[in-house]
Amino acid sequence: MRSDRSIASGPLAGVDVRIKLLVSFGYVLTVVATPLGWWWFFAAETSLLLLVFVLARVSFRELVGRWLGFLSLVALMALAVAVSHPLRPEIGLASIWGTILLKNSLAFGALFTLSQITQHHILLHGLGRLGLPKPLVATLQFMYRSVFILRDEFDRMAKARRSRSFGKKSWGDWSSLAGLLGRLFLRSYERSERVHAAMLARGWDGTVRTLDGADSR
C-alpha cells in the first residue's frame, strides 16, 4: 500500500477513483475467467497491463521487487493446484502451472497499479461510494492507521530485544519472538482503549462521521 508521499504522477492518477476501482476489479475478473489455453487473449491482457504501467508511471523496480515476493508465495500453491488439475493430462503440468502464475501475476499487477495511483484514504472513500458498507470502510481506515503504529511499536520492541541478545541466534529467538508478539497484542489492546477514550473525549457517540461520506453507526 502506497503512502501519500509517493503516489505516481501519471495521467491516470487524476481519474475518478470509482472508475479506477471498477476497471481494476473488472480486469481482475476477466483475467480470472480467461480459459486455459487462450494464449492470444492472455497476450492481449498482458499488453494492456503493460500499457497501463507506462501510463501510470509506476516504479518498475518496486513492481518487480514486490512481484517476485508475491511469486515466491504463489508458485508453490500454484504447483499444488496444477498437479491435481483435471485438465492436466490434456494440457500438461507446465501449461497449467504457467497459466495460474500468469493469471495471478496479471491480477497482482493491476491491483499494484491501482495502489500506486491512488491514495489509500481516497481508495477507501471510493469503495464507500461504490456501496461498501460504511462501518467496514471505517474499520479499514482504522486498520490502516493502526498498522503503522503497530509496526513502529514492534520495531522498538524488536530493537530492544536485539540489543540484549548480543548477536546470539538460537531456537530461543523464536520463543522470545513469540513473547514479543504476545506483548505487542497486549499493548495494542491497551492502546485501543486509549484511542477509544480519546474519541469519546471529542464527543464520539458511536456514529462514525466523516467529511466525505455518509454517517454510519
Partner: peptide, 18 residues
C-alpha cells in the same frame, strides 16, 4: 492515541462533526 483518522484534516474535523 488521539490521531486515528486517515488524514489530519479528517481527524481535526472529527470533533466538530460530532
Amino acid at each position: 492515541d488521539q490521531l486515528f483518522a486517515a488524514t489530519v484534516l479528517e481527524d481535526v474535523a472529527f470533533g466538530p462533526l460530532n
